[in-house]
Design a protein around this nucleic acid. Structure first.
Length: 457
RNA sequence: GGCUCGGUGGCAGAGUGGUGAUGCAGCGGAUUGCAAAUCCGUCUACGCCGGUUCGAUUCCGACCCGAGCCUCCA
């Protein structure tokens, strides 16, 4: 059995993964705040942790993977106001679109998908615990976490309270005892969504939901908590503070954070306005191509997003699918994924580029193989691909699927028939003219010993 | 200012104290009516300066450059 190694963001060390309960691995990944469409940067953690989910499922009998939906947030309130609708109109629309987009990327549904607004009681319970344990205080209608009450506050992100003061770039609210204190609960105006609470009508601070939902669904401590790098501080640091101080326990075994998708060397983000939504990219590329592109760099390294990246992802997938299509007559048998180099690569801190390199070796071997060997190699190639969440298409569909503007298959067949006729009569200029015509329409043809095949290019 | 992470061949991108990443592109060849696909062969590399070492791209230190967090953000 392969041994899984993961890099823990807390401390930055890679070590063997030891689940708290080998019979039941628990993972929580921060999901979207649903107020607009997901961009390709938002998709990276989804794809990365989906791959982790697949690896964990291969290694352990039971894996619970929770990914939350943040459906109460100031940005949502603003979006609802702009469109003159209720916040649930916004959150339901974009939660659904998020699910659709991520599913197009071959990402599996999480085991549970807790919504913040359905866990307000649990959040208020946590706020109460924190106050009674002197880790939080009420001031001016707010409930605030007292960062000085936690000796190792800052451990996850590697910061010290003193350093944070020096770099404070934002005006500190007067009701905070310490500038680093963060909001657990805040008052709502009459025209803002809110819930009644012992502290008055209000709504939760950003970090509270994850702490409360993790506790309710997964328990005091979980194995893995993931998200994008930018969540390390303040979000995860503060979550950790709330959970450790409110519930006790160690909270998270391994923290994992993916690096960003960059645009021209700069982070892609909503605030920079340089985003490309998954939905718009899906008009030009298959979800599998987008997924493969996202996995082409290691999750802890920045990934520069470009047309070249997507085009090369697509042609690489084409070459894999060609190898599969050319062996369509070969039956693949069940392959023990755990004994393949692809899986070994994934077990080494999700080394997807190395896993892809192993896929290339298998595809090359399959192209060269003959006889019984082909069955074994094809099985390994397929199993490796499934671990990465690719090869979901039937190889012949992969090459024949097209947008509305492509040539109909019947037209292609007709032209190929005419070309075969011309070739038989050694009328090569006519044959080549037909080939040029098909090429111009985005159809590549290949003459083989057993006839001519075609594919969309 | 504080903290973090990186700089590998034309490009993408792994990895390692001492022969091979891998892919794309290029070049040569096989194959093909010509192509396409495939296969074979082949060229480019480890930011800069020191140190440790028999030996460093890999370890240590300085420097240069880039990115990120410290504010909503995957």
């Amino acid at each position: 059995m392969s041994k899984l190694f993961l890099t823990n963001s807390e401390g930055g060390v890679k070590s063997a993964f030891e689940p708290l309960d080998p019979e039941h691995v628990r993972v929580y990944v921060c999901g979207p705040t649903v107020y607009n469409l997901a961009h390709i940067g938002n998709a990276r953690p989804v794809v990365v942790f989906d791959t982790l989910f697949r690896v964990l499922q291969a290694l352990y009998p039971r894996v619970t993977y929770a990914r939350n939906i943040t459906d109460i947030d100031d940005k949502i309130i603003v979006a609802a106001r702009e469109r003159s609708v209720g916040i649930s109109d916004i959150t339901e629309e974009f939660a659904q679109k998020f699910r659709e987009d991520m599913s197009a990327l071959n990402s599996l549904s999480p085991t549970i998908e807790p919504h913040a607004t359905l866990h307000v009681d649990a959040m208020l319970d946590l706020a109460d615990r924190l106050i009674s344990r002197k880790h939080a205080y009420e001031a001016d209608g707010h409930v605030l976490f007292d960062v000085t009450s936690m000796p190792d506050y800052g451990k996850l992100s590697g910061r010290h309270l003193d350093d944070m003061l020096a770099g404070a770039r934002i005006e500190v609210a007067s009701y905070k005892r310490h500038p680093g204190d963060f909001v657990i609960w805040k008052p709502s105006l009459d025209d803002e969504p809110g819930w009644d609470s012992p502290f008055g009508r209000g709504r939760p601070g950003w970090h509270l939901e994850c702490s409360a939902m993790i506790h309710q669904h997964l328990g005091d401590a979980i194995d893995i908590h993931g998200g994008g790098r930018d969540l390390i501080f303040p979000h995860h640091e503060n979550e950790r503070a709330q959970s450790c101080c409110g519930y006790g326990g160690s909270f998270v075994g391994t923290w994992m954070h993916n690096a960003y998708v960059d645009m021209d060397g700069e982070k892609m983000s909503k605030s920079l306005g340089n985003v490309r939504t998954v939905r718009e990219l899906l008009e030009q590329y298959s979800g599998e191509t987008l997924r493969f592109a996202l996995l082409s760099a290691h999750y802890r390294s920045p990934l520069n997003f470009s047309k070249d990246l997507l085009d090369s992802a697509q042609s690489t997938l084409d070459s894999f699918y060609l190898a599969l299509r050319n062996t369509a007559d070969v039956d693949a048998d069940a392959c023990n994924i755990e004994q393949t180099p692809v899986f070994d690569a994934l077990c080494d801190d999700l080394n997807t580029p190395l896993a892809i390199a192993e896929l290339h070796k298998l595809a090359k071997a399959l192209n060269k193989a003959s006889g019984d060997e082909r069955e074994k190699i094809k099985s390994a190639l397929l199993a490796g691909g499934f671990a990465l969440g690719i090869f979901n298409a039937d190889p012949s569909d992969w090459f024949s699927d097209t947008g509305a503007d492509g040539l109909a298959e019947s037209v292609i067949a007709e032209l190929l028939g005419e070309r075969a006729h011309a070739k038989a009569n050694r009328d090569f200029s006519r044959a080549d003219a037909i080939r040029d015509e098909l090429n111009a329409a985005g159809v590549t043809i290949e003459d083989g010993p057993s006839g001519t095949t075609w594919r969309r290019s």
